[in-house]
């Protein structure tokens, strides 16, 4: 529960940045902006121990054997920040399924936020909300749509992750059937039933296009404090991703992020 996490938080100040460490997560506050990061490799523990881990310059390459053949490589920087995810199919070859840039000589802890003009045509009514009346096809068809307005360029993962105006270029499905107890990220049986529909919808998208990346976003209401909300929303989004993976969605096709009480 979030109370247990809160009790184990440690706070540091470092050159104008506040760094908050808690189990599994680091939260940084700088120039009025707050970012949460978690261990991007944690969900790959499902594959068992890595078959190799090596340092290459400023990068750490961790490789897992995937059940059913092939390999997954996760490349991070020395602080554990995700740089690339690479899939090596059993038949040979290599696909970079996530490229998070970070190769230029710049940046401290802050990702570059991209601000695009708001989208006039996108209103809340266009959000597809999961409920009992929906079929899996409703979601897979929402996910198969392209950006709501044309894009001039493509971006690094963290730009997409931390830029609301970029994310809003792609339509989201809201999981209306999922509820959490206050301060908790546990899921109950009713949640699991609702998630099996989501898993089959993602499965059908991946069946046609296996390298698609889905962002699982956690959001909370305004009550409570900002840091608790960030942590809680990230843990809930991760819990959803874990269940989807138990239901057959490869963990490397998912990216998880909690946004706390900021507006989705």
């Amino acid at each position: 529960r979030i109370e247990d996490v809160r009790a184990r938080r440690q706070r540091f100040e470092e050159a104008g940045t506040t760094i908050i460490r808690e189990p599994g997560r680091v939260i940084t506050q700088e120039r009025g902006q707050t970012f949460l990061r978690h261990d991007e490799n944690a969900r790959f523990a499902r594959f068992g121990a890595p078959i190799s881990q090596e340092r290459r310059g400023g990068e750490i390459w961790t490789t897992w054997a995937r059940p059913g053949g092939g390999q997954l490589v996760s490349v991070t920087d020395l602080d554990g920040r995700l740089l690339r995810r690479i899939r090596r199919p059993a038949g040979g070859g290599e696909h970079v399924i996530v490229d998070n840039g970070w190769r230029r000589p710049r940046h401290g802890v802050r990702p570059v936020i991209v601000i695009l003009p708001p989208i006039e045509m996108l209103n809340p009514g266009e959000l597809t909300i999961l409920n009992d009346g929906h079929e899996a096809e409703t979601f897979s068809s929402t996910w198969s749509l392209g950006p709501v307005v044309p894009l001039d360029q493509v971006y690094e993962l963290d730009q997409v992750r931390f830029s609301p105006s970029l994310r809003s270029r792609m339509r989201a499905v809201e999981l209306g059937g999922i509820s959490f107890d206050t301060g908790s990220w546990a899921l109950d049986q009713a949640d699991l039933n609702a998630l099996s529909l989501v898993a089959s919808a993602i499965q059908s998208v991946l069946g046609a296009s296996p390298n698609e990346i889905f962002l699982v976003e956690g959001h909370t209401g305004r009550g409570g404090n900002e840091i608790d909300n960030l942590s809680l929303s990230d843990r809930r989004a991760e819990a959803i991703a874990e269940v989807l993976t138990q239901m057959g969605i490869p963990p490397e096709n998912l990216v998880v992020q909690g946004y706390g009480d900021t507006v989705p």
Binding site: L127, Y155, L175, N211, F214, L215, E217
Partner: peptide, 14 residues
């Protein structure tokens, strides 16, 4: 409100 959203983001990514 507590919400979970899932978005396919591949078209935005390099």
């Amino acid at each position: 409100d507590d919400r979970i959203l899932i978005r396919r983001i591949t078209p935005l990514l390099a």
